[in-house]
């Protein structure tokens, strides 16, 4: 089995060095791009299994690069953003990025995120996942049944739709904008508190300690993720 290719799009040489070293040591093949324009060519020629994209590129914003990649590629995109630039991060996620890392981050976290993104993309490519199980909660999307420790949990339609959306994208960050658009429709995208209220209800029904959720995870300022 050939090593998966990771495309790094990052303008700072020092950060590229760190990423390359960490990824090579972990067994990935690394292709590097310094600029957005170069990245498009490299992405087509190497067809990477995963793209690591820095949002602070000098020649193109990360959102444009994300959109361009998403036009033809389904490979997971992991964006890297500086703290305090939450807007960029959310826009990139809305544009189709899968996950994000905030600088500075450690190698352990980087590798964990990459592994989880790759696993997800393999799963979604192989079969339609219709059942997700986590922490004793079983979400059967074909039968629209949710059980907790074997006992069926009654969910209201909106609660179920929210849970099913997160389960379909298990492990991936879903932004408030994406959730609102999918569950409530395009007219509701500014009402983040709708999502928060439904999430609170879901946690009360499914989590042992709703204030310290084990799998319905808050991505502060961004959205939610179902930990898979």
């Amino acid at each position: 089995m050939t090593a998966p290719v990771v495309l790094i799009i990052e303008d700072e040489a020092q950060v590229r060095l760190f990423l390359r070293t960490a990824l090579s040591a972990a067994g990935y093949r690394v292709v590097e791009a310094e600029r957005g324009a170069e990245a498009a060519t490299l992405a087509r020629s190497h067809n990477p299994a995963l793209v690591l994209l820095d949002l602070g590129l000098p020649d193109a914003d990360g959102i444009t690069v994300t959109r361009a990649l998403r036009e033809w590629s389904t490979s997971p995109i992991l964006v890297i953003s500086a703290r305090g630039r939450e807007e960029d991060k959310i826009q990139a996620l809305d544009a189709g990025a899968d996950d994000y890392l905030t600088k500075p981050f450690g190698t352990g976290e980087l590798l964990a995120r990459i592994r989880s993104a790759l696993r997800r993309s393999v799963l979604s490519g192989s079969a339609n996942t219709t059942v997700v199980e986590v922490e004793g909660v079983r979400i059967d999307m074909e039968r629209r049944v949710v059980t907790r420790d074997g006992i069926e949990v009654h969910l209201k339609p909106t609660e179920y739709n929210l849970l099913a959306l997160l389960a379909k994208n298990a492990g991936k960050v879903m932004t408030y904008g994406q959730i609102l658009k999918e569950v409530w429709g395009p007219g509701a995208v500014t009402h983040t508190h709708y999502v928060r209220v439904q999430m609170a209800e879901l946690r009360k029904k499914l989590e042992c300690d709703p204030a310290q959720p084990a799998f319905l995870i808050t991505e502060a300022g961004v959205g939610y993720r179902l930990r898979a």
Binding site: R196, A200, D209, A211, Q212
Partner: peptide, 27 residues
């Protein structure tokens, strides 16, 4: 933004879990 208290406390507790360990945060 409107946010339930549980969620705010929950994400703060999650952000500091590693730092606080082995102390448990009771809510």
């Amino acid at each position: 933004e409107w946010i339930p208290v549980e969620e705010l406390i929950g994400s703060a507790a999650a952000a500091t879990r590693a730092l606080l360990a082995p102390r448990q945060v009771r809510t």
